[in-house]
Write a protein that binds this DNA or RNA. Structure first.
Lengths: 220, 220
DNA sequence: CGTTCACTTGAAAGTGTTCAATTACTGTGG
DNA sequence: CCACAGTAATTGAACACTTTCAAGTGAACG
């Protein structure tokens, strides 16, 4: 299957036809890939590292709309308005492929599977969004955090990483702003889970000790 | 511009090439279009009426993920898994066009603009989802309801309906389950807005009396 | 080694929920 | 057209959960 960009650190040749404008770009921790309001020119495929996307209200409240890792595509919600509606910021050192969106028509003529792939990717994102809505609308703090940890775990599992022990690249505050909770609440629930033996946390290093019990808490 | 299906009641011919399987279907109020878990075969374009989509947890909590009206497309989040992940139910008498998804590849070969259209539609939905996440994650009850009313108003405005006076086709409970609030809270805020002269409500008939003040409340 | 930022914990205060009771609709059949 | 039944909407009061504010601890980095 063709891909817009291979995940991974290496310098392997991308498996796209030649002549497609595709620029690699690296980001330092905290660096911004695009900001809300900027004209939409590119979508970005993450090669490595992690990126958060977030919306900000005029009075400064932040909603993190997603944490994205290698293989994921950023910027798709900007297609319809022609401007990015959120901002994307690297959580750690990251690498992305920049793909000019105005070449997508041409691109998908050369690669008919690309069209199908885009549908898949966007559908996946819609699905994910809906699950997040359920979480934000209907779950309490414990359920939210448990759901979140299991979700991370699954994503790591797919990528052949340890799914019981990993590093959180995002701060407690980021997690709170993603889950619709105050930073302090996130801390409290972490402590609670720790006390109950569900997880072991040492700052951003986390280990899940009882996936089943976490699943029972996460429900939904 | 070609469309999958014309909104409207009429029997006007759809502007699609002949030979595309496209069945019209009508729904009574409360009737289900598809359920979560069913195999994904069709996407549905709403011709008239309104449809809600919702997720349900095993313990019965409901999250309404959207209220959809004429011109909108349903079922897109099912592409990736091959099963509908939510259920779609008519809020009032409604008509839809059923479009077999396995013919989409063929279809977009005949109608190159369809591909672009799909991207637009899905991007629009992603955008809408993100706004809803901001609402669910960061706004208080008043802000949520104000945002909701203004959103409805805008949608009616686009469709050349009155944007200050309209009928809610959904129950208070549906609104609550969409906004992440209890039904009772929705009632209370309606009453509050009523007292303050912002809106006039008579059961499901609503009139917005002060858009500016509503906007000030909705913020974000 | 001190400064800064992130994280943690406690106590008080809100905000929205839950449960219960009441009132208003809607639609149906007599 | 009215009465009735069933559903939807509203309101009140007590309660629960999360937030806010404040203080303190810990880790990272120059």
């Amino acid at each position: 299957m063709y891909r817009l960009c291979h995940p991974g650190d290496g310098e392997e040749a991308p498996d796209l036809p030649h002549g497609i404008v595709k620029r690699k770009r690296t980001l330092k921790r905290g660096e911004t890939l695009y900001r809300a309001g900027e004209p939409f020119r590119n979508v970005y495929a993450i090669r490595y590292g992690s990126v958060k996307t977030s919306l900000v209200t005029d009075d400064g409240r932040v909603q993190v709309t997603g944490f994205h890792i290698a293989g994921e595509l950023l910027g798709l919600s900007a297609i319809v308005t022609g401007r990015y509606n959120c901002e994307a910021k690297a959580l750690e050192a990251a690498g992305v492929c920049e793909v000019r969106f105005d070449q997508f028509g041409e691109l998908s003529r050369q690669l008919p599977s690309l069209q199908y792939q885009m549908l898949q990717i966007m559908s996946q994102e819609l699905l994910h969004n809906q699950e997040l809505m359920l979480l934000l609308g209907k779950k309490n703090a414990k359920e939210r955090l448990a759901t979140y940890l299991l979700n991370l775990s699954q994503r790591f599992e797919k990528r052949a990483c340890s799914y019981t022990r990993f590093n959180l690249t995002m701060s407690r505050s980021d997690i709170g702003n993603y889950l619709g909770l105050a930073e302090e609440t996130v801390c409290r629930i972490f402590s609670l889970f720790h006390e109950e033996g569900l997880v072991t946390t040492r700052s951003r290093q986390i280990q899940l000790n009882d996936l089943d019990r976490l699943k029972a808490i996460a429900r939904g």
